[in-house]
Design a protein around this nucleic acid. Structure first.
Length: 478
DNA sequence: GAGCCTTTACT
DNA sequence: GTAAAGGCT
């Protein structure tokens, strides 16, 4: 675009772009639409009465704050940050600045989409045009609906449908040339935020913002995509892209990622990585079709399943003190970094719902508070998958064995050593199951019984048998 | 409608 | 090798 673009003219029409979970300039169709309309007024609105929209958990809120800071910088410090009821604030903002268009990116969460309709109606009642775009999904849910408008219930069928029926994901848009409407002195900007100690700890593991997201993608494609199909299963090999928090906050779009990996590595690696994007897609589409997925089991039979209430066991799991090293390593990785390796998420989650028979919603809620990459869709979908109460559930007898999983996927124990340092001196053979190690081996590793590292809070074989029975009868815990 | 296929475990 | 549920083709 040239500098004489009409958008830059001082009396060009004004469009408000309401940033939500699309904290980026590139490949942001709604922002591009605003830029084409005229001068752009960028705004973020946090509604403290609606925590289910923007800041679902503490770790997510921390990331979002820094992402907003990065976005504000990219916008020359002109990002407005308002607090309150969007349906009142947006029309008032439009009236003050004479805006004739408001744009935003659609959300997959049905309760947000519903609220958006009311907001759009309030704006249109004032004569202000509204334009929403798909900024976060490769395909719209209705593009992939089956006959009758429903959604495929299992992943493999959904995946086939994506390949066979869906148009290929559109090519990404460049960042638009923006004529940003300067922020007046009385318009609030992003407030400062006192950083808690645990947040400073998180900060050591991440670089936040759109630029960082793009840099991470470039590095992933250059260094880690080759070998991804096999390597991604090993938590210590760092073959994961770690793009999930950037995606969750919309610092990068799935379209950009999808196209960036094209032909960049052997076909099997590209396909395996893209399949992960399709899993993300699947979760969002299911939430669209099953609005209660976030808090209710998709299989009705599970509504009467008796989960165990045991705050002590739950707390041991949350703090990484279960005595099962791979589970504890995962839970501590989550606490220290706001992230957990994908395979370890499955193992840690399986342990909570199967071995401890604790309600998946307790785990969902802990992850919601701790994950920097939280999304309602992915979190609820994955927990229901592990708990077997989702649409595409694992068979009930599939209970991850955290010892076998550690031997297979952390064979030298590097991952466990990193996050459970009190076990670091144990030889690889025993590091996934220290309670089975001979006393002499434990002593040599400096482990004093029940002092340095807890004994397992449940017996794995016994709790497995109990879970099989609970699931077989469908009644739940005895 | 029978076979297929699951981000598996156990013997 | 065998176990075993359920959606999909």
């Amino acid at each position: 675009m040239s500098g004489s673009h009409p958008a830059a003219a001082p009396h060009a029409p004004v469009a408000i772009h309401w940033f939500r979970r699309d904290l980026r300039l590139a490949d942001n169709p709604a922002l591009t639409a605003a830029a084409r309309h005229g001068r752009v007024l960028p705004v973020v609105i946090d509604d403290p009465d609606r925590p289910d929209e923007h800041a679902p958990g503490a770790a997510y809120a921390w990331w979002r704050h820094h992402s907003l800071a990065a976005l504000d910088k990219a916008l020359g410090g002109h990002l407005r940050v308002l607090r309150g009821d969007v349906a009142r604030l947006l029309p008032a903002l439009a009236a003050r600045h004479g805006a004739t268009l408001v744009t935003w990116s659609r959300a997959a969460e049905p309760w947000i989409a519903k609220r958006d309709e009311a907001i759009a109606a309030a704006l249109q009642a004032e004569g202000i045009a509204v334009r929403t775009e798909n900024g976060s999904l490769l395909w719209e849910p209705w593009e992939l609906a089956g006959p009758g408008g429903g959604c495929c219930r299992v992943f493999s069928a959904f995946h086939r449908r994506c390949r066979a029926l869906a148009p290929p994901p559109r090519p990404p848009l460049p960042a638009p040339e923006l004529a940003v409407l300067p922020r007046a002195p009385d318009e609030p900007r992003l407030p400062d935020r006192a950083e808690a100690a645990w947040e400073r700890k998180l900060a050591r593991h991440w670089t936040i913002g759109e630029e960082a997201a793009q840099a991470r993608l470039r590095r992933f494609v250059a260094e880690k995509l080759r070998g991804y199909a096999k390597g991604r299963d090993y938590p210590s090999r760092a073959h994961g892209s770690r793009l999930s928090p950037h995606l969750a906050h919309g610092e990068i779009s799935p379209h950009v990622i999808w196209h960036a990996v094209a032909d960049a590595a052997p076909a099997a690696d590209v396909a395996a990585f893209r399949a992960e994007l399709v899993w993300r897609e699947f979760a969002h589409h299911l939430l669209f079709h099953f609005p209660r997925m976030a808090d209710e089991p998709l299989r009705p039979a599970f509504r009467t399943f008796a989960w165990r209430q045991d705050p002590d066991l739950l707390a041991a799991w949350q703090r990484g003190r279960t005595g099962i090293p791979l589970v504890d390593a995962g839970m501590r990785e989550l606490w220290e970094t706001g992230f957990m390796h994908n395979r370890v998420r499955m193992v840690a989650a399986s342990f909570l719902v199967k071995n401890l028979l604790i309600d998946w919603r307790a785990g969902e809620s802990w992850f919601r508070d701790c994950l920097v990459d939280f999304s309602f869709a992915a979190n609820a979908f994955n927990w229901q998958w592990v708990a077997d109460c989702g649409t595409d559930a694992a068979p009930y007898f599939r209970i991850f064995n955290p010892v076998t999983q550690a031997r297979k996927f952390d064979p030298d124990g590097a991952y466990i050593r990193r996050f459970v340092p009190e076990l670091a001196k144990l030889p690889a053979r025993w590091i996934g199951s220290p309670w089975m190690a001979p006393g002499t081996v434990r002593e040599a590793a400096g482990l004093r019984p029940a002092r340095d590292y807890p004994a397992p809070i449940v017996d794995l074989a016994e709790s497995r048998a109990r879970a099989l029975e609970a699931y077989r009868t469908g009644k739940g815990a005895p």
